[in-house]
Simulated scan of single mutants.
Amino acid sequence: MTGPSRRTLARALEALADFADPSLALEQYLTPPEIAAHVCHEARLQDDLDGWVVDLGTGTGMLAIAASLVGAERVVGVDVDADALTQARRNADRIDEAGKHGPLEWVRGDATDPPLSPPNAPVTVLSNPPFGAQRDNRHADRRFLETARSLADVSYTIHNEGSQEFVESFAADEGGEVTHAFRAEFPIANRFEFHTESEATLEAEVFRIEWLRE
């Protein structure tokens, strides 16, 4: 499967707009273009884009659009926030001015209980779930992993630093295996009242998991 280089993809994704009015409760942070490019470049190298790609909690569409740009056959972005999906559509239209991306579908629904049925085709889940920084969102990444387990043959998820033991243990308990892991910097812009710096950088970890479909 051919497509843009990782660097070219990251540059293209820099054109995507951020959340207009991000929700603290949903921990809405823009997925960094460099991380999205790295994830989707790796997915292409692993031949994980030949079936369906489902972006759980797509937000502004960063991972979904990245997957479509590198040649995914069918991409579905799921998010509970209608405003976020509106921005995702606008972002896709912005990229599509040059006819660059493939088919994209946007679905409103709870990313941890999406209104989707596993198709009779390979499924790859991409997700940048909440890190669980807010009290009501604690263990949110676990719920996203549970959903990935129910849908996917392969998943790529982004987590806070220090999550490797948890992710590997969860995968092993659910019949999965972490096959790839890498660290990534996650810039956070000042957007909520409790932020005291113009920008901070979190250390994140990304995991590729192969799941045994029942």
Rank of each mutant, 00 (worst) to 15 (best):
G3E: 03
S5G: 12
R6D: 09
R7E: 13
L13Y: 00
L13R: 03
E14R: 13
E14L: 06
A15Q: 07
L16E: 05
L16Y: 06
D18M: 02
F19V: 00
A20E: 14
D21V: 12
D21Q: 12
P22I: 02
P22W: 08
L30D: 05
L30A: 15
T31M: 03
E34W: 03
A36C: 05
V39M: 08
R44V: 05
L45G: 01
Q46S: 11
D47H: 00
D48N: 10
L49H: 03
W52R: 03
V53M: 05
V53H: 04
D55N: 11
L56K: 10
M62P: 04
L63T: 04
A67L: 01
S68I: 04
G71D: 09
G71T: 05
A72M: 02
V76P: 04
V78S: 02
D81C: 11
D83P: 04
A84D: 10
A84H: 06
Q87V: 10
R90V: 01
N91S: 06
A92N: 04
D93G: 10
D93I: 00
E97V: 14
E97D: 10
G102R: 09
L104E: 11
L104V: 12
E105F: 14
A111Y: 12
T112P: 06
T112V: 15
D113I: 03
P115Q: 02
P118A: 15
P118F: 09
A121Y: 01
P122S: 07
P122T: 01
V123K: 10
N128L: 12
A133P: 12
D141Q: 09
R142Y: 09
L145Q: 06
T147W: 12
A148F: 14
A148H: 14
R149D: 15
S150F: 05
S150V: 02
A152V: 09
A152C: 08
D153A: 08
V154W: 02
S155Q: 00
Y156F: 15
Y156C: 06
N160L: 15
E161M: 14
E161V: 07
G162C: 09
E165Y: 14
F166Y: 08
A171Q: 07
T179S: 06
A189H: 01
A189S: 05
E193H: 04
H195L: 04
E197R: 01
S198T: 01
A200T: 14
A200G: 05
E203R: 13
A204W: 08
V206G: 13
V206K: 11
W211K: 06
W211V: 02
